[in-house]
């Protein structure tokens, strides 16, 4: 670049992006790099010793408990994702295809109402609803439908899936809604015109075109639920820990930050690999330009 003008322009550009860049560095890169470097250090009792080691990873990857908890996290997340997206799709569809255009923004507003209360309170409320003497059990006994309170609705995987699915529903509804809104309605008429009924038109036209939204919804739900920590603690009663609970135990309770970091990095890698495989499987839908 011989031109001095270009230099000035480049400098101006750099000045412009510098604040967000520093911000991203401080908020994203520094914590991740800290955890990453911790994971290669040695744990001394109550302190971290600056000696490089693969020991933490060897310990994490060879521990059957970690493997079991990681698998449980994956399967709970997968179940939550499936339930959430399956429940979110009809809502998004209704919102996009049935609700009158002038009412849509009100509906979107209503869908975000759960965010008005803290996540912790919402999780706790589910405990109240599902508990031994909770809303469901007391009303069912009161109505004489059951004699004994149902026990399978709290402190197990089902209740965790239910709670998480409720918490993440808006995150799934919104991307699917956006994808459905983008579909040119004449495509659906074309599907019908070419001899397909409503159901087949949905299967052959609407669903493939909504897939980018579904993929986004899956990732938005799957990635954070794997790391969820509050719900297993409260709804799972601490008896069915997920990977985040293991990390918490190592980091805080046992003060073994290197091992906790190795667990965190491992979980991150697993999520990244699963997400990439999922994206790759859906690549043909994601290439479509509407």
């Amino acid at each position: 670049m011989a031109k001095p003008g270009m230099d000035r322009e480049a400098r101006q550009g750099l000045t412009l992006i510098a604040p967000p860049f520093l911000y991203a560095l401080a908020i994203l890169a520094v914590p991740v790099l800290t955890i990453l470097s911790y994971s290669f250090l040695t744990d001394g009792y109550l302190e971290v010793i600056g000696e490089f080691t693969f020991g933490n990873y060897i310990q994490v990857w060879s521990d059957p408990i970690v493997r079991a908890v990681l698998l449980r996290s994956l399967s709970v997340s997968a179940a939550v994702t499936v339930v959430t997206v399956l429940l979110a799709f009809p809502v998004a569809y209704y919102l996009s295809f049935v609700v009158r255009p002038e009412r849509k923004s009100m509906w979107l507003f209503l869908i975000t109402i759960p965010f008005w209360t803290s996540y912790l309170i919402r999780v706790f409320l589910w405990k109240v609803i599902l508990g031994y003497n909770g809303v469901i059990n007391s009303s069912l006994t009161g109505l004489g439908i059951i004699d004994q309170p149902l026990t399978f609705i709290l402190y197990n995987v089902n209740s965790m899936v239910l709670t998480l699915a409720h918490a993440y529903a808006p995150f799934a509804i919104l991307p699917i809604f956006v994808a459905l809104e983008k579909i040119d309605r004449s495509l659906l008429e074309a599907g019908r015109d070419l001899g397909e009924n409503r159901l087949m038109t949905f299967w052959r036209v609407t669903l493939p075109l909504a897939m980018p939204g579904v993929v986004a919804a899956v990732l938005i739900v799957f990635i954070p639920t794997i790391g969820d920590y509050v719900t297993p603690e409260l709804i799972g009663g601490g008896k069915i820990p997920m990977i985040a609970n293991l990390i918490q135990v190592q980091m805080l309770a046992l003060d073994n930050r290197p091992l906790g970091s190795a667990l965190a990095v491992t979980a991150m890698l697993v999520v990244a690999v699963v997400s990439l495989i999922f994206l790759w499987l859906n690549r043909r839908f994601l290439r479509v330009k509407q």
Partner: peptide, 18 residues
């Protein structure tokens, strides 16, 4: 519409993008 002996060329052409 799907059972009528008619077919349509739409104004926007409605070519399936996928």
């Amino acid at each position: 519409a799907n059972s009528r002996p008619t077919n349509m060329v739409f104004q926007s052409y409605a070519i399936f993008p996928h």
